[in-house]
Design a protein around this nucleic acid. Structure first.
Lengths: 158, 158
DNA sequence: GTTGAAAATAGCACGAA
DNA sequence: TTCGTGCTATTTTCAAC
């Protein structure tokens, strides 16, 4: 517990300096960059960079090093955003159903009259219909097929 | 150009076997796993695994090795999904505005009466208002604040 | 934050199934 | 083709500063 409990608003302790920002930017582009190469990029020694990376993970800034998959390349021809409004009393049941349906690869709980917004990947219209059908008894859904991407996932401003 | 131009429907060439699936699953959990350790996990030699990783990248299955950032840890207290409907004739202008607003860290083009669905991160309500205000002249927006996550980003079924 | 030495790893050529 | 082995260069890690 080395948080500074000073005056007022303080929500996180991560004061990213320029070097951290450059490390994160580089890792965002290629998370498998060798630490040694990262070190050359930012002009520090490898142990320093390794230490910073550990710090960023411990602080929770870096939640994970992961892989970005192209679902189309796996045969999932269709991606869609599905808004899901459970029928009265079925909120938790529906949430469980979403979680247990692997074609939902992401689902946020949101404010407003529609509690869930989920990302769906399917091989075909038929599969999409199957998935939505499996919810139809417990929820009203509204589906928007993804036609393309305007902004590819990117880092927030650092 | 070694694509097989055979008969009909063929959208991808990636026939993932069990080993590929396990490699992807492991890399999804930690993209910085050393190839040698991955090799031990899947029971192959390191060069074989390295070769498979190259293949997965070349086939487009792996779009990138990247980093998952916790925007809250960076001080972005609020995340929201924003549905954006440009006013007549302003579709391209609005798309450009979205792209040039770094607080939009993701934006899909979708079917339906609302062309854009964007993910927004901001430090405060005031900042959120600023961003939405900057669009208000050219588009109608509808914002749902993200209260939590039901399904964390995960791999599609392999 | 740096340096330097030891251990682990990555990349490459080559041969085997 | 796909995988394994042996080699060398590079990287990682840990210590001491």
């Amino acid at each position: 517990m080395k948080e500074k409990m000073h005056s007022g608003l303080r929500f996180e302790n991560s004061t990213l300096d320029e070097v951290d920002a450059r490390i994160l930017t580089a890792l965002d582009a290629d998370a498998r960059l060798p630490t040694a190469e990262l070190a050359r990029l930012v002009g520090l020694s490898a142990p320093s960079v390794a230490e910073r990376m550990r710090r960023l993970v411990n602080e929770g800034v870096v939640r994970a090093y992961t892989v970005e998959i192209d679902s189309k390349a796996l045969g999932y021809q269709i991606r869609a955003m599905v808004r899901i409004r459970p029928l009265p009393g079925k909120l938790h049941l529906v949430e469980r159903l979403i979680q247990e349906t692997p074609q939902f690869i992401e689902c946020d709980k949101i404010t407003g009259d529609v509690p869930f917004l989920a990302r769906l990947v399917v091989h075909s219209i038929e599969e999409m219909d199957d998935v939505l059908e499996s919810l139809s008894e417990h929820a009203v859904t509204s589906t928007a097929v993804i036609k393309g991407t305007s902004v590819k996932r990117r880092l927030p401003p650092l």
